[in-house]
Amino acid sequence: MNPVFNMDGATLSPVALFLQADWVVKFVMAGLLLASIWTWALIIAFWRRIGRTRKAMARFERDFWKAEDIDVFYKAEGENDLPSARVFAAGVTEWRRSTAGGTIDKNGTRERLATSMGAATAGEIDKLSDRLNILATVGSVAPFVGLFGTVWGIMRSFTSIASAQNSSLAVVAPGIAEALFATAIGLFAAIPAVIAYNRFSHGINRIEAALNRFADGFHTTLSRQLDGSR
């Protein structure tokens, strides 16, 4: 470590702090920077995905409730790659299987319809939530990784004091600056991850609620048809 530490703007720049840091602190900083980049990539991907999904689901459900014939609508939209379309397809598939025979078990059909659409809803939510746990992991782990860099930098400062037998700012400041910079990078990675995780979890919960409402409404429609059948 360089015992001379000029406290000017250039020396205190992020690049300079990284270059003069110990290899352990460099490793911590690099890992946190990569985690931050990964976090922002996930944030952008989730933001676009959830936004597109909600708009497409609203359009699909609007068209569904306007449709006069379920079979015709199924032929047109049944293969659509949307959560609501998959729930709809699961309901239609179970309906056709349960009503294919001569005698229809109405109560059993209702239960199977609810189960199949509920399973489809759960599966779609699992797909939407994929990799969301990464944001939670970064948000909870990054501050502690940064804290490790902080502790290591402070340990280097005390070692420098013991080696130089001098407690002046020129000896202590480099390790302290590196330590604080590692902490800052950890917070820079963790704070957006926590905010995004909470926000996207709320968005996914809203999509799940919309899917459940759609499934309940479709289940009610099919139940009316069961009441009119023999």
Rank of each mutant, 00 (worst) to 15 (best):
3 P>C: 05
9 G>E: 11
12 L>Q: 04
13 S>V: 12
16 A>W: 08
17 L>V: 15
17 L>Y: 01
19 L>H: 10
20 Q>K: 14
21 A>Q: 01
23 W>K: 12
24 V>E: 03
25 V>L: 07
25 V>K: 01
29 M>Q: 03
29 M>V: 08
32 L>W: 02
32 L>Q: 04
34 L>M: 14
35 A>G: 08
37 I>M: 15
38 W>L: 10
39 T>F: 01
55 K>T: 14
57 M>S: 12
57 M>H: 01
64 F>C: 07
67 A>Y: 03
71 D>L: 12
75 K>C: 12
75 K>N: 14
81 D>N: 15
81 D>F: 04
89 A>H: 09
95 W>D: 02
95 W>I: 06
95 W>P: 00
96 R>Q: 15
100 A>V: 12
104 I>Y: 09
108 G>R: 13
111 E>H: 13
117 M>V: 07
117 M>C: 07
120 A>T: 04
125 I>V: 15
128 L>W: 13
129 S>G: 15
130 D>N: 13
131 R>A: 13
132 L>H: 05
133 N>A: 15
140 S>L: 08
142 A>C: 13
144 F>G: 09
145 V>H: 04
148 F>M: 04
149 G>D: 02
151 V>P: 02
154 I>D: 00
158 F>A: 10
158 F>D: 09
164 A>D: 05
166 N>Y: 12
167 S>A: 15
167 S>E: 09
168 S>L: 11
174 P>D: 00
179 A>H: 00
179 A>L: 10
181 F>A: 05
182 A>E: 03
187 L>R: 05
190 A>H: 00
194 V>A: 02
199 R>E: 03
199 R>S: 07
201 S>F: 01
204 I>F: 03
209 A>Q: 04
209 A>R: 14
210 A>F: 03
211 L>I: 06
215 A>W: 02
217 G>I: 02
217 G>Q: 12
219 H>F: 07
224 R>C: 05
225 Q>M: 13
226 L>S: 02
227 D>W: 01
228 G>A: 14
